[in-house]
Simulated assay, not measured.
Amino acid sequence: MSVSDNVHSPTHPQPKAVLELIKPITWFPPMWAYLCGIISAGVSPWSSWPLVILGVVLAGPVVCGMSQAANDWCDRHVDAVNEPHRPIPSGRIPGRWGLWIALAMSVLSLALGWLLGPWGFAATVVGVLAAWAYSAEPVRLKRSGWWGPGLVGLCYEGLPWFTGAAVLSQGLPSFPVVTMALLYAFGAHGIMTLNDFKALEGDRQHGVRSLPVTLGPEVAARVACTVMGLAQALVVALLFIWGRPWHALAVLALLCAQVWAMKTLLADPKGKAPWYNATGIAMYVSGMMITAFAIRTLEVAQ
């Protein structure tokens, strides 16, 4: 069944297919980053636990789930080439149900964001707009191998980190918090570049100029590794400068382990990208939480 046939199908989506559409496996990074933001703010999460729970749900299942639904709807023709088994091209989510789900979840995101206060709502608006700007025409930043991964990295790591800190502290986060959130968002550009390897053929056919398409898998993998490594090296340097040597050494140890994994990745970028996503990325996000604990009392110490 073609994508065009699916658009006119009168049937309803399968519940299991809806869950697959919003991809629970992708919820972890923004949920984790939100928790990192809470820790880094230096405020006890138990003092505002409803905001903690609401923010985690909003960052993961709702906003991230919405972004996945929007991306799959806008990418349905590409997915028909790359992954025809996905819910929309396979017909398990027929007609325009993918679009309606994405729009409904956008509204739900804004409603829940409103409950987080002005900082949380503003961040939710940014996240929703970014999700559609990434996937939808005429903007479709996904077409760029530089802007697309950068935007996703910002929304997956930087924005939820910032939001968690702002919501719990009820104000603009400190300079160290914002700096670390931006550095880990910058590093996430490399993570998103590696994620593009699975869509290489479809991206070529449909004009998506991801780095694996424009630079080739080998060069794109080197760029991704350099970006991830540079971001964490800057984190380590700042932690040393700010008087957090033990945390800096812990992040450095994780970075060294990632360098070992990167060597395996670079030997076969296309084949080993999924393996690296399951190993190197775990160490990357572990470093995020270590960094969050390092800076949670930084202002007090200064």
Rank of each mutant, 00 (worst) to 15 (best):
Y134V: 01
P87R: 04
K16D: 13
L154N: 05
F186W: 12
M288F: 11
E157F: 14
G113N: 08
D75C: 09
V125D: 03
W146G: 01
T214A: 11
A70S: 13
S135R: 04
G117Q: 02
P149Q: 03
R140M: 11
M1T: 12
L159Y: 07
A123T: 07
V235N: 05
T11E: 15
G60M: 08
S286N: 10
T226M: 13
E218D: 12
L230D: 06
H206Y: 15
I290H: 04
A250E: 10
G190S: 06
W46T: 13
T163H: 03
A41W: 02
C225I: 14
E157V: 15
L99Y: 14
G91L: 01
V78W: 06
T264C: 09
G95Q: 10
P118Q: 09
H12T: 13
V259Q: 13
A248S: 12
G171Q: 07
T179K: 08
Q170E: 13
P245W: 05
I281V: 15
Q14K: 15
E201A: 14
E20Q: 15
L151E: 08
W32N: 01
A233N: 00
V300C: 00
L239S: 02
W46N: 03
N6S: 13
R76F: 04
T291V: 09
L108V: 13
G187Q: 03
P245R: 08
I241C: 11
M192D: 12
G127L: 08
F197H: 12
L238G: 05
L112E: 04
S44D: 15
K263E: 14
E299Y: 04
A131F: 06
L238R: 02
V78M: 10
M66F: 09
I101P: 02
G287V: 11
L58W: 09
S48V: 10
S169A: 14
I88L: 11
P13W: 05
I22A: 04
I22Y: 05
A301H: 10
V285I: 13
W275E: 11
S48N: 14
A224D: 03
I281T: 13
R96S: 12
S40N: 04
V235C: 11
C155L: 09
L115G: 00
P29L: 08
G150C: 07
L110G: 07
C36H: 01
P138Y: 01
M288S: 12
P29W: 09
G158S: 15
P217M: 03
K198G: 03
L265D: 05
T124Y: 07
A273W: 06
W114N: 02
A122E: 00
L230R: 05
L19T: 10
I39R: 09
A188S: 15
S9G: 10
R76V: 07
P274K: 04
W246S: 12
C256W: 14
A294C: 08
L141T: 11
D196A: 12
V213I: 10
D5S: 13
D196Y: 01
H189D: 00
G42K: 00
E20H: 13
P274W: 08
V152G: 08
E157R: 06
G153Q: 08
V235Q: 11
W27E: 09
N277L: 15
A136F: 12
L103N: 01
S135Q: 08
T214S: 14
L99G: 03
G216N: 04
A224Q: 06
A273P: 06
E299P: 00
S106H: 02
M283E: 01
P269V: 06
W97M: 09
